[in-house]
């Protein structure tokens, strides 16, 4: 389907590009928010990425999926924005091997929340995470990309992706737990 629309766009049908905007806009926005942490800036990033992809379409050789190629552009545009703000992409470090997730307790606390409150907590947690961590979580769990594609998009090795994913998940639960405790305390 993508290649069909790709041909149309390359044939001069600008409107056919809307197919890509509608199909990949949502995830691109999630990726951009993960990196720049701000919806207004994330929209700028997504717009620039779409424009850049459009102009680079003739050079796209279709060796990878359009989505992988495009998300790579979104990530790069997001990082460019971060560099302008002089914020560094968090390095892969800080091993917290000691932290264990009490999955049943966490599950119980989350289930007690309403759906929109739950969503709010998850987004708050992802917002508090370093750009690299929240990006990998969204790519892997939300977009359900496999490890190879995540590695390609983030320009990391497969081993690095696996390690980063493991650490990010731990950080995610640690922050989430802290947020929930904080919320519980403020209620009591």
């Amino acid at each position: 389907m993508d290649s069909e629309f790709l041909k149309k766009v390359l044939g001069g049908d600008e409107q056919a590009y809307r197919y890509f905007v509608d199909k990949y806009g949502n995830m691109a926005f999630s990726i951009a928010v993960s990196i720049v942490k701000n919806p207004e800036e994330a929209e700028e990033v997504v717009q620039d990425a779409f424009l850049k992809a459009y102009n680079a379409l003739p050079a796209f050789q279709q060796r990878s999926k359009f989505s992988t190629w495009f998300y790579k552009i979104v990530v790069n545009e997001g990082l460019k924005k971060l560099r302008k703000k002089k914020i560094k992409f968090a390095p892969v470090e800080e091993i917290e091997t000691g932290y264990m997730v009490d999955e049943s307790e966490l599950n119980q606390s989350l289930r007690s929340l309403k759906e929109n409150e739950q969503k709010q907590f998850i987004n708050l947690t992802l917002g508090k995470m370093a750009a690299r961590d929240s990006l990998i979580m969204r790519l892997f769990y939300l977009e359900e990309r496999d490890i190879n594609e995540v590695a390609d998009i983030m320009e990391l090795s497969i081993t690095n992706v696996k390690t980063l994913l493991f650490r990010s998940r731990k950080r995610f639960y640690r922050i989430l737990e802290e947020e929930l405790k904080h919320e519980l305390k403020s209620i009591l």
Partner: peptide, 22 residues
């Protein structure tokens, strides 16, 4: 959990992108 964090794109973003393209 992450599935629940799906963010809706700002209203009209697709139109703004298309405007810039065309």
């Amino acid at each position: 959990l992450i599935e629940g964090s799906r963010i809706e794109i700002p209203e009209g973003m697709s139109d703004r992108v298309m405007f810039r393209i065309t």
